[in-house]
Design a protein around this nucleic acid. Structure first.
Lengths: 234, 234
DNA sequence: CGCCGAATTGACACGGTTCAATTGAGGTGG
DNA sequence: CCACCTCAATTGAACCGTGTCAATTCGGCG
């Protein structure tokens, strides 16, 4: 999974693929739903990769309002505490998850001479993250409920394609409507109604933990989603 | 300005301060309002620092809606095209600006052995950026107009304090209400009315290009702003 | 003095929220 | 195997924060 993810971002040599495969085969930690994976001053120093399951970086306001900042999907890295231990952000699991230690990947990335592919991939992963954050901001600031939903679906389809988990525009989708609401800055009720319209118009279907996109051009046009592309050469 | 900004993020040795001062004294480029500083496939390869003036990373939708993703203030770095040349984001100047080439800083940051302070500062600047992006997302997704405005003011006060440009809770503020609207995901009319309330309640005053915060505790409580702090040791 | 962009104002419309049930689906124990 | 529990999904109705439209006023500048 890790090799697949990073391999989609840069060309890896055999040694690098072997390294990432070894990391992915390391001891697996299982987390249940609603576990706290980082933040709140807990002891979560490690740099970890997600093998399966979804998580999110979350900010909670005092009165209980919640904002999901960014989704963390299989193959993604769970940022260690260092970054946001102190600024009020937290990483929550949204499903049960399988996670492995990725310290070796981080170390490898810091030695571009020996691991050019991994170093490049990690850098591009950071750029991609940044790109998705920018998109999330536009989504929340300037798009209406339908556009936000469509844009989210496009982003997820894109991200799952990267790791080869999208067949026929069909991807895993384990989020509750409440999680979608907290991600898109809407109320649960409105998420429900927006979804109904998308279903009625036969643009998507969403059931049994899977999302299937039927009318991709329509969602594309509605959302104005743009893939985070980069030039081939560094 | 550059030395002040980076010096607030990590301890710089004399050689580093000298280097940054030299960079800041380099040839200045002046940009007028509404200039495009990066993106749109233009030829903006350089890594640059802002000496004076405000800019923003912007996303524009087809129908004219605009979202300001992130403000770029004096002392900030203007990201080069590489990152978002292809994903539809652009850097716009919001005022006239003075800008210098910062390639030397980037090169220095890549040699932590010789420039430990600069390398650490650049890394922390990136973390801070990330933190502000997270905040922007919560602002747009889960806060109402008053909270958004208060939060923005708190962020700006914090950022200007970092570079020693805030005296008595008073900072430069050259944004038009339209820019504020595009930053906070509101309409101009609503920005205007929200500002009026803040003024009437004597929490801020905003005139002649300056913002003065009178009731900081109130804005703090309303916005739930949290400073992006980090441990002293790396 | 006259111009132009920015700020301000009022009236009205609407997207989205809130509240309060109700229905549905998966899991568990008796 | 059914009764029951719980959490997620769904529905209806009322409400309100914010947007839209269309003037009007203000303020800096040539």
């Amino acid at each position: 999974m890790i090799a697949r993810r990073l391999g989609a971002l840069a060309t890896l040599n055999d040694a690098e693929i072997a390294l990432l495969t070894r990391v992915g085969a390391g001891p697996v930690t299982v987390h249940s739903v609603k576990a706290i994976l980082a933040g709140h001053g807990g002891d979560h120093q490690l740099y970890r990769y997600i093998l399966s399951g979804w998580a999110a970086i979350v900010r909670e306001l005092k009165d209980g309002r919640r904002q999901l900042i960014q989704l963390l999907l299989p193959g993604d890295c769970i940022p260690s505490n260092e970054v946001f231990r102190y600024d009020g952000h937290v990483v929550h699991s949204l499903t049960t998850m399988q996670v492995v230690d990725g310290s070796q990947v981080r170390i490898a990335a810091r030695d571009p001479a020996r691991h050019p592919g991994i170093a490049a991939a990690i850098e591009r992963a950071a750029q991609q993250d940044r790109s998705f954050l920018n998109m999330q901001i536009t989504r929340l600031g300037r798009q209406n409920a339908h556009e936000r939903m469509a844009h989210l679906f496009m982003e997820l389809l894109y991200r799952f394609r990267l790791v080869d988990m999208a067949e026929d525009n069909r991807i895993p989708f384990p989020l509750t409507q409440e999680a979608i609401a907290d991600l898109l800055g809407l109320s649960v009720v409105h998420v429900n109604r927006t979804l109904q319209v998308l279903r009625r118009d036969n643009q998507v279907s969403l059931r049994q933990g899977y999302l299937e996109i039927h009318d991709l051009p329509a969602l594309q046009a509605l959302s104005e989603f743009r893939e985070p592309v980069w030039p081939d050469a560094t």
